[in-house]
Design a protein around this nucleic acid. Structure first.
Lengths: 353, 353
DNA sequence: GGCCACAGATCCCTCGCTAAC
DNA sequence: AGTTAGCGAGGGATCTGTGGC
């Protein structure tokens, strides 16, 4: 891990004036060539291009930004980068940004929203063309409420999106519904939820969707078992589960589902024979759990990509290519779910076989 | 997922000239106050501060960068953001950058090094103070070979680091050695390796360390089983394993270890009773696998943090606080490893009990 | 009253580029 | 196609006021 510093006496970087002199044109002509503006003869353009190449000229984006009052930088205010969802989102966003010739400035924030002011200061300061906020927490929302950004802002995973929009923009609602209905379809009626942390918007959306789906099928929700996305919290939840009143568990993400399965295994409760377990997200490892986890695939990479292109479209309506829509949530049935056994567990509903 | 655009007629952002007029001083005085330079009376300074606050002034970083030829931006050229290691590394890096008042510009690159030129162009262009490269692949290295950056560059996870430095800066060597020696200590001698993709520097380092550690103990290496970091490839590897000549498996990361364990379970081979399995990385889920995975914890977050502060120290030797060193790799013994059974498996070495 | 030293504030030019003429 | 004038800041030289002798 060593730092390589460029040679100290390295010559000053070339400017458009240097290029202009070498090509025998005015600096404005160089500017025109750089920006693909009309008004230069093909021959001139070629001469300029050659000069650019021979000098190794790179445009100075600070000067460009200053003069044009535009920049090719996008900000991303991010919470929970370590979670698999957010990190895939960022990857998709960074990729989309780069494809469009932008860089993504990452400003990470913890979920408490502490230092939110410092973060928004940074964003305000660094002349960005737009900002994507992936701040799934209420507290971050609150901390950001007073912020008056000067550039277009896209808030991904906002609470309201998922509650009001039946399609669930970030897929939370649709994914949760798919999971619950899969269990319902197998014949389960006593379905427990291990929820994500309340203050995360997507956790709240999933919890909400669980209740809504159960209600839509005229089934009572079971008391929600709280979790914090981690396998550890799923493990705790799995120990708290009452196998006499529950035949299936929906964990709000795959990591918690893993913890639940391990807890049940410790208690000698077989999955899926005694209790079915299902997750949400479809992390790459989910298919290799014991048993392989039934879950709902979510296209976080696509959401990130889509967020950036959506943002870019309002910044630069003409220059932005249409973006492929993210894939809708997709149920992936593996081996952790099965029909309930006709046993004491099915207290309320008559056993159907 | 909607874009909020600031009111169209929003007033032009305040400049230092506006601040100066309001405070009744020259713009240069404002500049001094902004940069905490000496030479302003306390009373004047307060007046300027008040004007700044009342106008909501934010300095324009493009103008600052242009005029001062310095920026508060760091670039990160990143490959494999989806892997858990890199994403933690970036989180640590982004946090460290923000603490130092910098933002991290992420430019993501796929591991083939395709588009490397466009990526380095982006980096060259965006007047950065320095660049961190987390490009663990040979191909990226090759693509970058022709790049002559103008700013200090820190290459994390370079091949040579791990091979020449016994401490293994990124922990690969030390972690691998710890894993192998743990198995050795349990009495295993027939230890197989499921390797990461060759072209990743850290995979190569781990493979190298495996051979070196075996050799140091005068034990033959077993043929290396190739993998690609994924649980899927671990699963394939687990099926390829010969249980008659192998008593333990080291997987180069935890995901592959998961796949191996699942494959062995499918084949009716008990872990750890028949074959021990160990991973590297200690992902948060590792403790909840069945059985809980013995692995080596790696402080990726710390590496990222450390990379940035190391880079900043060469950029701004005085202004950078000393950084806490990343934690060294640490063996985490859980339940997937056990002494070998005295059976046919121990062909070469006499069974020790 | 004149001279100097010096902090405190100002003036002008510059950075590299875009935009209007 | 070229000329000229900014964009918003920083850097150094320069001016102003104060106090000491």
């Amino acid at each position: 891990m060593s730092v390589v510093t460029p040679p100290a006496g390295s010559t000053r970087a070339a400017t458009i004036y240097d290029v202009a002199r070498l090509a025998g044109v005015s600096h404005q002509t160089v500017s025109r060539v750089l920006n693909d503006e009309p008004g230069t003869r093909a021959a001139t353009r070629e001469r300029v291009r050659a000069a650019i190449a021979s000098l190794g000229y790179r445009r100075n984006s600070a000067a460009t930004a200053l003069a044009s009052r535009r920049s090719h930088r996008l900000g991303a205010l991010v919470t929970g980068m370590l979670e698999s969802g957010p990190s895939k989102f960022i990857d998709g966003a960074a990729t989309a940004a780069r494809q469009a010739g932008y860089v993504l400035d990452i400003v990470s924030l913890d979920h408490t929203g502490r230092d939110a002011t410092q973060a928004t200061d940074l964003l305000d300061q660094h002349d960005l063309a737009g900002v994507v906020i992936l701040a799934p927490s209420d507290q971050v929302h609150a901390a950001l409420a007073t912020w008056r950004p000067r550039v277009p802002v896209l808030v991904a995973t906002a609470l309201e999106d998922d509650h009001t929009d039946p399609d669930g923009h970030t897929g939370n609602t649709a994914a949760t519904r798919a999971a619950v209905e899969h269990l319902l379809g197998l014949g389960h009626t006593r379905i427990a939820l291990v929820a994500g942390p309340d203050h995360w918007a997507s956790a709240a959306a999933r919890t909400h969707a669980y209740h809504a789906t159960m209600a839509a099928h005229r089934l009572p929700s079971l008391p929600v078992i709280p979790g914090d996305w981690s396998a550890r919290s799923g493990h705790l939840a799995g120990h708290a589960l009452d196998p006499t009143t529950t035949t299936a568990v929906l964990a709000a993400n795959d990591q918690m589902a893993l913890g639940v399965i391990r807890a049940l295994s410790e208690r000698g409760i077989a999955v899926p024979e005694a209790i079915s377990a299902i997750g949400i997200d479809d992390i790459p490892e989910a298919g290799y759990f014991l048993p392989p986890l039934t879950t709902v695939h979510l296209d976080f990479h696509g959401y990130g990509h889509h967020a950036i292109t959506t943002l870019l479209r309002t910044i630069d309506p003409v220059g932005t290519r249409p973006t492929p829509a993210p894939e809708p949530p997709r149920l992936v049935v593996r081996a952790s779910t099965a029909p309930p056994v006709a046993s004491a567990a099915t207290v309320a509903a008559p056993a159907v076989r």
